[in-house]
Nucleic acid binder design. Structure first.
Lengths: 224, 224
DNA sequence: AGTAGTTTTCACAAAATCTACATAGATGTG
DNA sequence: CACATCTATGTAGATTTTGTGAAAACTACT
C-alpha cells in the first residue's frame, strides 16, 4: 500500500516535527516546508500531495497567501492551523477554500482524526469510521460509544482516551505517552489527571471497565 | 552493520562513564562532552551523531542552552536527564524540542530502552520488540510475559530482571552486575534483595523457574 | 454574571511492591 | 564430619504507586 503524502507548512521547526512524528506514525508520508514560498514550490514540484497542513502565521508569505496561490490551480484539501479560533479568520479562510480549521494548541490525536475525516470525505481515505472491540463500538464520526448495544455517555476526554486505548490495545501505555497524544501539546499539568479519567471511564463502562488494566509502575493497558 | 553514534553530555565524569559503559555494551558508539561548549563543538564537528543524551544541570552552558544551539541547526533526537521530574523544566524543554525526559536517578536498562524506542520511532532503530527463549516470550511493548502461551503476572522489577536474564542468557551474572543495570544507579541497599526477587520470579515461573540457576558464590545465570 | 458540565488538582486511603532481616537450609573445604 | 560461607524463604515494615471522592478551576452556553 502506498502512503499518502501530506505537506506540513509551519515556520517553527518544533511544530513541524511534532506534526510530522505523529503523522508518520499514523501512516503518512510527510513533506515539510518552513515558509510560504517553499510550500508553494514543494507543492508544485511534488505532483501527488494528498493534503496540506498549513499554519496561518508565517513570515514572508502567510497562510492565506499560500492558500490563494495553491487554490488557483488545485483543489487539494487544506487544513489551517490558527491561534485561538478567530471567526474573522474562518470567514476569510472559507472564501479561500480552506477545508478545516484546527486551533492551536491541539492534541496530535485530533489532528490525525481531522485529516482522516477529510481524506475519507474526498474519497482518498483509508481508515475506518468505527472501531470495535469486545462489544465496545466507537463511532468516530458521531463521537458516540455503545457497549453491547447500549449507548454510553462519555465526555470529550473520556471518548478520546477510550479510542486511544482501543487503537493501542494490548500495549502498555505510560502516562507520559498518553499525555503526548491525547492531551494538547501544551499541557504540562499533573499526569495523575489520567488516573481520574480512567476511574470515570471504568465506572461508566460498567463491568467492561476492567478491561482497562493497570500496569503497576508503568501506566495502563487495554486488555487484549 | 555500523554502530550509531550517541553523544553523552554531563559534567560529572562518573555519570558519563556510567552511561557510556552501558551504551557501548548495547552496541552504540559513544562520544563524551564534559560541558555545554564542548558538546556543541563536538556535535558540529562529528557529522553523524544519531542521538544526544544531555544533562540539564551543567556549569558554563546548561542543557537548555545546548539544546537551543543545536536545535537551531538540527533535529537530532535529544534526551534530557533531569532531577526528579520538574514540571517547569518540561515546559521549557518542550519549546526547545526535547524528545524525551528521564528523571535521575534512572536504571541503565531503562535508559537504553528509551534510546532504542526513539531511534526506532525515527526510523534508525534496530532492536526487537519481543524476546523469546525456552517458551518464555517477553513482549517489551505490552510489558507482558507469557510462558508456554500462558500470561504470567510479573511486577515491574521482576519483569526487568527476567528480561535482563534472557538478554544475557548463559552468562553468570554477579549480584553487583545485576544491581548496576536493573536497579537505579543510586541504589546502595542490600544486594540480597536480588535473592528475594529471584525467589519470586522462580515461583511465578512455575516449573520453568529452575532455568534460573544459582551460581554458588557468584550470583545467578539463566540456563542456556 | 449564572449555571451546568467538564477537567484538573488535591489529600488521604488502599494496594502492590520492594527491602531488610531472621532463620533455616545448602554447599564447599579441610 | 564440623565449620565457615553462601543461598533460600517467610515475614514484617517501609516505600512507592494507584484508587477515590470532593473541591477547585475552567468552559460553554445562556
Amino acid at each position: 500500500m502506498e502512503r499518502l503524502k501530506v505537506l506540513v507548512v509551519d515556520d517553527e521547526s518544533r511544530m513541524r516535527k511534532l506534526v510530522k512524528d505523529f503523522l508518520t506514525k499514523s501512516g503518512y508520508d510527510v513533506l515539510e516546508a518552513g515558509d510560504g514560498e517553499q510550500a508553494v514550490d514543494t507543492f508544485f514540484k511534488e505532483k501527488d500531495i494528498a493534503l496540506i497542513v498549513l499554519d496561518v502565521m508565517m513570515p514572508k508569505m502567510d497562510g492565506w497567501q499560500v492558500c490563494k496561490e495553491i487554490r488557483a490551480y488545485s483543489q487539494v484539501p487544506i487544513i489551517m492551523l490558527t491561534a485561538r479560533s478567530d471567526e474573522q479568520d474562518e470567514l476569510t479562510g472559507f472564501k479561500l477554500g480552506v477545508d478545516e480549521y484546527i486551533a492551536k494548541p491541539f492534541s496530535p490525536k485530533i489532528l490525525v482524526a481531522r485529516i482522516e475525516a477529510i481524506l475519507r470525505r474526498t474519497g482518498q481515505g483509508s481508515s475506518e469510521d468505527t472501531l470495535e472491540y469486545a462489544g465496545i463500538v466507537i463511532d468516530k464520526v458521531a463521537h458516540q460509544v455503545t457497549i453491547d448495544g447500549q449507548p454510553v455517555d462519555l465526555s470529550f476526554k473520556e471518548f478520546e482516551l477510550l479510542t486511544y486505548f482501543i487503537e493501542n490495545k494490548g500495549i502498555a501505555l505510560s502516562r507520559e505517552k498518553i499525555l503526548n497524544s491525547v492531551w494538547n501539546y501544551d499541557y504540562f499539568g499533573d499526569a495523575r489527571t489520567i488516573d481520574t479519567h480512567v476511574k470515570k471511564l471504568r465506572s461508566k463502562m460498567g463491568e467492561k471497565g476492567n478491561i482497562i488494566r493497570t500496569v503497576w509502575g508503568m501506566g495502563y493497558k487495554l486488555e487484549e
